[in-house]
């Protein structure tokens, strides 16, 4: 068995004294693990850092085997990410999110989103809104996608302001007012493609929204806790916003 694909490194676990088991998100083969012989060498360690985009050749005798990776660099992002708290927590959060997906299950859209977000992780004002969109895309891939395109009650595509915690569908300001205490606020930037001028409050609402559905549909049924990296990422975003405001 052999294939060639590009991927983004999510993590590496030491294996023996010289090798690592590399975890990657690939474009056409989903989240995929493989052994990298000599992966703990001085030459290979900088290459096998999370966030780096690499060219992968995977070989194994049988498809169900772990197999071995041959890794070549395409875009070394890790050194850039190390300098920023938002980026460092961001890449850990992305990896934690992608570990919710089954192994070897291709999600080309998710990979493309991952590629875009990795390129902007050290820019907090872009990384914040992008990560929310990534979380929405992930919920969708996990089968718990939210319908934020039109109102569940009126069918209107304008004035969407809330999301029903029961159905995950959007509701307009007008139709949702009687139940606003029970509904989750829907920030306007999530209903458009424009992420510019995303306010701090809107971002908080957006993370509260995705966090609610992750907790209810993913973490709780699987008996998991929210990853520490999410709290770290949100705290780093808040600190960055405070510094920008000063």
């Amino acid at each position: 068995m052999e294939w060639r694909d590009e991927g983004i490194i999510l993590g590496a676990r030491k294996y023996g004294e010289t090798s690592v088991v590399l975890e990657t998100m690939t474009a056409a083969h989903g989240r995929h693990l493989g052994l990298v012989k000599g992966g703990r060498s001085r030459r290979m360690q900088p290459l096998l850092q999370p966030g780096n985009r690499v060219d992968l050749v995977w070989r194994a005798r049988l498809e169900e085997h772990l197999g071995a990776f041959q890794v070549e660099p395409l875009e070394l992002n890790a050194a850039r990410l190390l300098a920023s708290a938002v980026a460092i927590h961001g890449i850990q959060l992305l990896a934690a999110h992608l570990r919710l997906m089954p192994e070897r299950d291709a999600h080309a859209g998710l990979y493309e989103t991952l590629k875009v977000i990795t390129a902007h992780l050290d820019e907090p004002e872009i990384a914040g809104p992008l990560m929310v969109r990534f979380e929405l895309a992930l919920l969708d891939e996990l089968g718990f996608g939210l319908d934020l395109g039109k109102c569940a009650l009126t069918g209107s595509r304008e004035g969407l302001a809330y999301v029903s915690p029961k159905s995950g569908r959007a509701v307009t300001q007008e139709a949702g007012t009687p139940w606003r205490d029970k509904l989750l606020p829907l920030p306007a930037f999530l209903t458009t493609r424009n992420t510019a001028e995303t306010t701090r409050e809107a971002l908080d609402d957006a993370y509260r929204l995705t966090g609610f559905f992750f907790h209810r549909n993913v973490y709780e049924p699987r008996g998991m806790e929210e990853p520490d990296a999410r709290g770290g990422f949100l705290m780093a975003l808040a600190r960055s916003a405070e510094r920008a405001a000063d």
Partner: peptide, 13 residues
Amino acid sequence: TVEGQTTAHYITD
């Protein structure tokens, strides 16, 4: 490394 620097940022916090 990413893990080392994550720890550094955590301690800084």
